[in-house]
Deep mutational scan, measured.
Amino acid sequence: MQRVNMIMAESPGLITICLLGYLLSAECTVFLDHENANKILNRPKRYNSGKLEEFVQGNLERECMEEKCSFEEAREVFENTERTTEFWKQYVDGDQCESNPCLNGGSCKDDINSYECWCPFGFEGKNCELDVTCNIKNGRCEQFCKNSADNKVVCSCTEGYRLAENQKSCEPAVPFPCGRVSVSQTSKLTRAETVFPDVDYVNSTEAETILDNITQSTQSFNDFTRVVGGEDAKPGQFPWQVVLNGKVDAFCGGSIVNEKWIVTAAHCVETGVKITVVAGEHNIEETEHTEQKRNVIRIIPHHNYNAAINKYNHDIALLELDEPLVLNSYVTPICIADKEYTNIFLKFGSGYVSGWGRVFHKGRSALVLQYLRVPLVDRATCLRSTKFTIYNNMFCAGFHEGGRDSCQGDSGGPHVTEVEGTSFLTGIISWGEECAMKGKYGIYTKVSRYVNWIKEKTKLT
């Protein structure tokens, strides 16, 4: 034993070699072989497995989906700052455009905790909710729209109204504003409101030439003092309507412009014939205590009207009353817009006519005020429907199939267009061939041609 100890002390290297040989010859039971080890760690190889990531292109799944990435790591994937920024906006807080917040056709661009709407022409605001041009839906104005110097929408209202708090709607500024039905039992019968379409306001006024200088022999019209197929109006439903009495009662109609003036057809009036105007009328054979009678003290036909040349060209006249009318729910003026808007309103496509005229061709006159909704007829169809001249200051309205029309005794009465609950004068009943005849239409004086003249002559002093 002493000898062994001496050998170990003198030859430590020998001992180490012996131990190493023993270990190498022993069977290893701690580690699995290569094949079995792979069965336990069965993990798919990654895209760049075996390579240094710093030297390969980034992978979106590896960089940002398996674990949260930084902007720089995302930049490695896209290799483009702009594309990385677009991805980053949604990656950080989701897609803010998912709810489609942009209105009126706006395009949404996502941002971090926010979004941006790219608005089409005519709109602005956070969600493109603000109209900035009158060309689109009248700028959301209830009545009139004008573009300011910086191309912003400025709404306005006709006389007797003021802008509401929203700067879009119009509200009454006087007790009985024009064009409004205020009798409670008839307010439910107000005709369907007309909503502004998209309009090209630059070209809204037709490029028409008034044929002022045409000389033409007097034409022989049949029954051209021209509501057939209409309905009984309720008291106060058309408070701007008046009836004219002269040699015979209810020979023509008219509309209240203001307390002192009536507008009617020029062919209705004769110099030297006494005319009485009755406002607030409903049943011409009954006294309903809503009527107001006034005498006409002055007749002003349009300066281009000449019955000797043509009885229905420039067929418009103004009547001055001896005493002002007292405005109330049964006696209310009709609204008159400017030339541009009167023309736009007419193009809405349908209007209402009213009167006490004959209820059928050569038949009896109506006792109760009649009204009828009539569609506008395109000019080409209008011209083809008659052998008589249709001037540019006239328009056609009615039904091709016949059966409904204005008729004798309705002449001078109103053709009105309702705009968001307020009625505007767009025409004056003038003439036609018979009444409600198939293929024939009622012919009306186009008020847009005469609004400046009306307003100039009827100013209240």
Rank of each mutant, 00 (worst) to 15 (best):
S217L: 05
N283T: 12
Y201R: 12
G402C: 06
L14S: 04
V374E: 01
F31K: 09
Q370V: 03
V368S: 05
D212N: 10
Q167N: 09
E288A: 06
Y391F: 11
L19M: 07
V195R: 12
E456V: 06
E231P: 10
S99N: 13
A233H: 06
K362S: 11
K68E: 15
N36H: 09
R404A: 11
E165P: 07
N313R: 14
C435F: 03
T29G: 14
T85H: 05
R83Y: 10
G439C: 05
N36Q: 11
D95E: 06
A149G: 07
N59Y: 08
E434I: 09
W356G: 03
S114M: 04
V154H: 08
T133K: 15
N38I: 08
N113G: 07
F123P: 01
K274S: 07
E434W: 10
G427R: 00
K39V: 05
L318Y: 00
N203I: 09
G179D: 01
Q408W: 13
G105I: 00
G403H: 15
E418S: 11
V257E: 00
C252L: 01
K274I: 06
N104Q: 03
L425T: 00
G58Q: 05
G122P: 13
A380E: 13
S11R: 11
G421T: 05
P44R: 05
K440I: 03
C435R: 04
T381L: 08
A37Q: 15
I210V: 14
I17M: 14
P177M: 02
D200Y: 05
E86I: 15
P239T: 02
F348L: 08
F345E: 01
G432I: 04
K362T: 09
T342P: 01
T276C: 04
S406H: 11
P101N: 02
K440E: 15
K188E: 08
V183Y: 12
R449P: 15
G122H: 04
C435T: 03
A164D: 06
A337Y: 00
D378S: 09
V353E: 02
K260W: 07
P375M: 13
F238D: 02
L103C: 03
T29C: 10
Y450M: 02
T389A: 14
M8C: 14
W118C: 00
D405N: 15
L32Q: 14
N304V: 03
P172N: 05
S11M: 14
T215H: 05
M437N: 08
C407Y: 05
A26C: 14
Y341C: 03
G160A: 02
V416I: 08
Q408A: 06
I262R: 01
G412P: 13
I112T: 13
S99A: 11
T16H: 11
V263A: 04
H302R: 02
N306F: 05
V174C: 05
T158L: 08
G246C: 03
E66S: 08
G432E: 09
R3D: 06
Q219T: 11
V296G: 02
E208V: 07
A173K: 10
N283K: 06
Q370T: 08
V353A: 07
D198I: 09
A149W: 06
L321Y: 01
T332M: 06
V353K: 04
L19A: 06
L376Y: 06
W261A: 01
E66H: 05
L318C: 03
L321D: 00
A308T: 11
T287R: 06
S25D: 05
C108T: 00
V263R: 00
A366H: 13
F87N: 15
L32R: 09
Y91G: 15
K339P: 15
V368D: 04
E456S: 09
F78M: 14
E79N: 11
V269R: 02
S411K: 14
V248P: 09
I297E: 05
Y371I: 10
K168F: 15
L244Q: 01
M394A: 08
I344M: 14
R140W: 11
N166K: 02
V359R: 14
F360Q: 08
T218C: 05
A307G: 14
K89Q: 12
H282E: 03
K51G: 13
D198G: 11
C69T: 04
R298S: 09
V416F: 12
L19H: 02
V326F: 06
K293A: 06
T194A: 13
V331Y: 00
D405C: 09
L321A: 01
T426Y: 00
T186D: 12
M8G: 12
E124D: 02
H302C: 02
S217K: 07
L130Q: 15
P414C: 10
D223G: 09
N343T: 09
K68L: 09
G280R: 02
P333L: 00
L372C: 11
P375L: 07
Q241K: 05
M6C: 12
S70M: 08
K311D: 03
C382E: 01
L189Y: 11
T84C: 04
T458S: 09
V331W: 00
N222Y: 12
V278W: 05
K137S: 09
T422E: 01
N258G: 03
L376F: 09
